[in-house]
Design a protein around this nucleic acid. Structure first.
Lengths: 196, 196
DNA sequence: CGCATGTTTGCAGTTCCTGCACGTTTGGCC
DNA sequence: GGCCAAACGTGCAGGAACTGCAAACATGCG
């Protein structure tokens, strides 16, 4: 899969920068960590940092830049019998399962993000970008247009809301709850039209 | 309402800075406008700029910082007979009506935001903050807890998705569509459980 | 080996943003 | 009107984020 040495080194460096950023911010707080600090702990030059992340915040949040596109592809690949809502729900559940697999990374990420308001904003922006990509995929699958019909953006946005809600409850439960279970609950409520 | 001279001057300065930022960015694009440019056009010192906005981006987007709290208050003030969904829908419609009243400001804002990716991110962050405040209000009204129950964040998030979708479609229609009408469509779809 | 291509790094420079200190304006009070 | 306290505007100094450029360096491939 990751064949060449070059690519392996790149992903290793990216991960090293992300983990360095995450741990430093967990220890000291966002504004007591500089890009130079992060670069130093990851053993690269400060200039190199910006070859991997566009900003300090991005390095801390450290999301896979290919994530949204992969989700969109997964959505497109769902069986044609499924309704758009069923398909979105299915990939949300898959994503949740994958997130919950690593008992360290996502909990630490969420802990650090919830503690630093600027990062909450960054994560929201990342979700919004993901929504945008997913909306395009939904439009293609359903033969609608993002600009004209409500469904694509609405469904993508609701999916994002369901995931954010579930992540928050997962965090609030100290990661003892089942993330896929929380995702299911959220989608049940959505499918029922959000009963009060 | 706005009694003192002091307060009137403050809101005037804030508005001047926002309009300066908006028009300059509309003309040249975000990265060809500096804070100094904005301050100069608004006739204040660069240092004063930061007494009104925390960042250049915030000045361009220029949302009322009291907006989320006002929405939450409006939600709390809805008749007790209404379900949470009905109440949220009602204030969404009110908000949409108010936005559509000014035929200049919101269209220009949306135009500028959609043209500059960094601003899309900022707007998403602002919506997320609004969601957070609304979720708290929903929890209080329904006797649930934001940390434990899905409804507060989920409903707030869905409301945000409905508004973002409607704003996008309004923009895509060149502002010829009725924004409250689009909001109604979005909420109809949500209430029906997002049929495909 | 040796070339083409991609990656790292240092450096100079711009812009954003903040803390601090000081002068000016405003509102309340007599 | 005159006075005081609080709020506001401004200049300055400085740290940190980020970018473009060009020179070294590493890797893949023939």
């Amino acid at each position: 899969m990751t064949s060449g040495l070059r690519e392996r080194k790149k992903t290793a460096t990216r991960l090293a920068l992300h983990e360095a950023a995450l741990r430093l911010v967990a220890e000291r707080g966002l504004d007591r960590v500089s890009v130079d600090d992060i670069a130093a702990r990851a053993d690269v030059s400060p200039r190199t940092f910006f070859n991997y992340f566009a900003s300090k915040d991005d390095a801390v949040v450290g999301l896979d830049p290919a994530g949204p596109a992969e989700q969109a592809a997964a959505f497109t690949a769902r069986p044609t019998g499924e309704s758009p809502v069923e398909a979105m729900r299915a990939i949300a559940r898959e994503t949740a399962t994958r997130m919950a697999e690593d008992p360290q990374l996502w909990p630490l990420r969420l802990q650090v993000v919830e503690t630093n308001p600027a990062l909450v904003a960054k994560l929201a922006a990342a979700f919004s970008e993901s929504d945008r990509v997913l909306a395009t995929a939904i439009a293609e699958r359903t033969g609608t247009r993002v600009d004209a019909d409500a469904l694509p953006m609405l469904l993508a946005g609701v999916a994002g809301a369901a995931m954010r809600t579930s992540l928050h409850r997962w965090f609030a439960s100290d990661f003892t709850a089942s993330l896929p279970g929380l995702v299911d609950e959220a989608w049940d409520a959505v499918a029922a039209g959000l009963p009060g």
